[in-house]
Amino acid sequence: METMLEARDLARHYEDFSLRGVSLDVRPGSITGLFGANGAGKSTVVKVLAHQAPPHAGSVRVFGLSYADEERAIKNRIGYVPQDPVFYTDIFAASVTVRWMARFVAPYFARWDGALFHALLDEFKVNPLKKIRHLSGGQKKLLAIAMALSHGAELLILDEPAAGLDVVYRRALLDRLRAFVADGSRAVVVASHVTDGLDEIADEVLFLDEGRVVLRENRDDLLSRWKWIHFKAGALDSDIERGLTEVRRQPFGNRGLTSDFRALCGRLAAAVAAGDVKVENASLEDVLASYIRKV
């Protein structure tokens, strides 16, 4: 299958932080989620992928092209939403409206769809006559998302797109992203906190910690390995119990998280049947928390 985005051994250094050895491939039809704690390097990876901050080492190829040779062509085909969107100002900055912004942006894109842009503004309840400086943080984010979706992009690169959105617009965004990749020809890369709900739609998952990728896996595979095991005292073999993480011992029962449920499945079957052990799905948030603590 063709790769839409290919990043190899990306590195970028700041005074107090370094991104090192980050590689990833993005396939058509996929949503790749970059997750990690604050300061893990999610935004840096996104900036490098969207050519907002070129890497100090490594390479990025988008649609088989490099930014060095085809920056304009690539940017015409990607939609980028930064963590804190900024918009153009003019000498009369105070009077710049959302509609003016659309007129400014349209000539730059080869396939700008003004009707779609205004439909999205309508859906997101952003008044096109409102001045940019009067928009709330969430509305600015929605405006940036509308712009990213309105120029025929084939790849969306989003940095915490759901941050600052209320539950209604967060759901609308998730639906939009699902629909975006539904025909299998487009893809999304999204950096996010797992609590923003984007973990629900990501099918490829990368965990970042201190500027490095510490886990890269298909989401379904990952969650089929990680399970909560609820058990009565003495119900588990000691080696299984020792292998659990995040163990909580409570008067009404114990629980622990396993990262290798498939291997334990057969050994737990009898205890599960006897009602001494219960298995519960873990969330991506559980996995991330446990993984980062372990690393």
Partner: peptide
Amino acid sequence: REESYAFLRTLPVAD
């Protein structure tokens, strides 16, 4: 002053 280079970089405009 207040030149929006960060915004321009998001558009298909080469440096």
